[in-house]
């Protein structure tokens, strides 16, 4: 394992290999635990938003509903259409889930802490190129959707996958440019250092435009309403995952919700001060992950709220909104931030 630091680049401290394994397991388990909660929360909340009780039959208040869902999906037969391409059909959900989990490991839940005499960072990995790493895995995640839709051998799946391709390309640019402003202000690409740079003022204040752009593009990247043309159920049955069932469908589902958590986590980290609390409140270190989780859940609630509220965009509206409004706005934001940063550095302001 002595070569690992050279692979991971500049790491401030050296973590033993067993810590890294423990961290991976804990992070994956965390994601695996939150997703069913989010799932139940979404169905309950959507019910309330639409004036109905939501799932309330399985267990007390319907709390065991996700267990029933997962059990049902796990025991279903893995059906696949005769026109599909077997091996691609099988590996596509795996790509989706792998990249989502890899991106999840990027979210810092706290600073480095001392656990039984070992320095442990409360994050999966703190790479020196945080946002770029995120976008790299986002780029690979696209192949999970694209290959799934293409290999299904069904027109609905194919159209869903094509829409996903166009949508991802269009909104990835704006999302990246929105983060450029933050990176310039913080002067670092490491996510933990970005959080530390927000001591005193969270970036949601000076980078409010960037925050809005990032959030909107995040909706599009995770294929959530009102940008859910990828799986528009009224037109495409289910989009790229129409032909999937059983455990493979569950993997796609898991990856989708994990991606929502990733967007919520990155927004929290980059714009909402990560594990910091406002007004100079300085809680003990073990509270930090809970603070991050609470902020993330706030965003997840916002995602669900938005899903229940506006109607789906039309395809041309989606494209012109992405290219003609979001992209120029993001470019302008980056430009203005750059000018302000230079002026502040020179002492003009």
């Amino acid at each position: 394992m002595s070569t690992l630091p050279s692979v991971l680049g500049v790491v401030d401290y050296y973590e033993p290999w067993w810590i890294q394994i423990v961290k991976s397991v804990v992070l994956f388990a965390l994601g695996l635990q939150i997703v069913p909660i989010v799932l139940l929360g979404e169905r309950k909340l959507l019910g309330r938003f639409q004036g109905r009780p939501g799932p309330n039959r399985v267990g007390p208040f319907g709390l065991l509903q996700p267990l029933a869902d997962i059990g049902k999906l796990a025991f279903k037969a893995d059906f696949r259409p005769r026109t599909s391409i077997g091996w691609l059909f099988a590996i596509a959900p795996i790509i989706s889930i792998l990249t989502a989990a890899a991106a999840f490991s990027l979210i810092p839940f706290g600073d480095t802490v001392d656990i039984f005499g070992t320095q442990v960072g409360l994050y999966g990995v703190d790479v020196s190129i945080g946002p770029l790493y995120l976008f790299a895995f986002g780029a690979v995640a696209f192949y999970g959707i694209m290959l799934g839709g293409w290999a299904s051998g069904s027109k609905y799946s194919f159209l869903g996958a094509m829409r996903a391709a166009a949508q991802l390309i269009s909104y990835e640019v704006s999302q990246g440019l929105a983060l450029v402003g933050v990176v310039m202000t913080a002067g670092t690409l490491s996510l933990t250092e970005i959080v530390q740079a927000q001591e005193g003022m969270w970036y949601i204040v000076p980078q409010f435009v960037g925050f809005l752009i990032f959030l909107v593009a995040g909706f599009a990247e995770t294929n959530r309403a009102p940008f859910d043309l990828v799986e528009a159920d009224a037109e495409l049955v289910g989009g790229y995952n129409t032909e999937y069932g059983g455990a493979r469908f569950a993997s796609y589902f898991f990856a989708e919700y994990l991606n929502i958590l990733v967007v919520a986590g990155i927004t929290t980290t980059v714009f909402l001060g990560g594990w910091m609390l406002p007004f100079g409140i300085n809680p003990p270190t073990w509270v930090d992950p809970l603070v991050v989780l609470a902020k993330m859940m706030g965003f997840v609630f916002f995602f669900i709220w938005i899903r229940a509220t506006p109607p789906r965009l039309r395809y041309d509206q989606l494209m012109s909104f992405g290219w003609k409004i979001l992209l120029p706005l993001a470019t302008l934001n980056a430009l203005v931030t750059a000018i302000v940063v230079v002026l502040v550095d020179n002492g003009t302001i």
Binding site: S6, V7, I129, A136, M146
Partner: peptide
């Protein structure tokens, strides 16, 4: 990545695998 060029590695994935090849795939499909 093995050469410790993380930025180049990420740019390679984002630009080539993420943008250029997506367009290729779009057209070919």
């Amino acid at each position: 990545l093995l050469l410790r060029a993380e930025f180049v590695a990420a740019a390679q994935v984002v630009v080539y695998a993420g943008a250029v090849m997506v367009l290729y795939m779009f057209v070919v499909a």
